[in-house]
Design a protein around this nucleic acid. Structure first.
Lengths: 123, 123
DNA sequence: ACATTACATGCCCATATCGGAATATGTCAA
DNA sequence: TTGACATATTCCGATATGGGCATGTAATGT
């Protein structure tokens, strides 16, 4: 087997930096393809292919008007990502708290004696 | 060119479902490799390879003790992902609000006449 | 009808991937 | 030293990718 298809998942789809750029560009308002091309300075077939991937995983929607197609980010599709990442939030808070506490202890010590070896801490 | 390396980015690294599983498993407490193997029912070389990728992008840290290596999720490394996704939060809220408003208007109308064509709404 | 505009798709190629199996490295124990 | 245990790395093959370029298709204008 090889890597999972880019279209298999929102996680796989957003791994590509240009696709993230496209999503960012299209979140505020819909835009026709040529505008994405000129704005991000990619060539048109490339943009179309990226849009295809994003479309396949529901990260963008299209509205057709004459010969133009207006794409727009489907923000809800990013939510699962956000929620998955949020799962880890309390843990990085923990770590930050530990760092903070240590800094505070160090500062308290600093004003008394200036030691060079801190107390024995985890991580 | 091919797809960007899995080790090029946290975004690329977490595209793989098993790597996400590993991160989830290792966030609460550190574990030796064999425990990851038995817990997730993957074979050992596979786990070692995934850990290598995660390590390369700073998503896990290792502590060596004798012949064992204890891995643990480095939660901070997931933060950029969370923040990138959070960028879109207000937009999916918007959409939800619009849906909600429409539902409320519809409900209000419902109690009066039961029309079949709503007002002209965007999206 | 014909040219032009706006996108989408197809083809080729170099590359990185993941799985599987084997093997290498490193540590402890007898 | 020899052997068992814990983990890492390597080689292989199949596959999907993204860039570049050409071509296809649909809608508009003249």
């Amino acid at each position: 087997m090889a890597r999972a298809a880019t279209t298999s998942d929102a996680f796989n789809a957003i791994a590509e930096p240009r696709r993230r750029a496209i999503l960012t560009l299209l979140v505020a308002r819909e835009r026709p393809v040529n505008e994405i091309v000129s704005e991000l300075k990619l060539d048109q077939p490339s943009v179309s292919k990226h849009l295809r991937v994003l479309r396949d995983v529901g990260l963008v929607r299209v509205r057709c008007d004459g010969r133009q197609k207006f794409y727009r980010t489907q923000a809800e599709a990013i939510r699962p990502l956000h929620e998955w990442a949020a799962t880890f939030e309390r843990y990085w808070s923990h770590q930050l708290n530990r760092v903070k506490e240590r800094a505070e202890r160090a500062a308290a010590q600093e004003s008394k004696s200036t030691p060079h070896t801190g107390g024995k801490d985890d991580d």
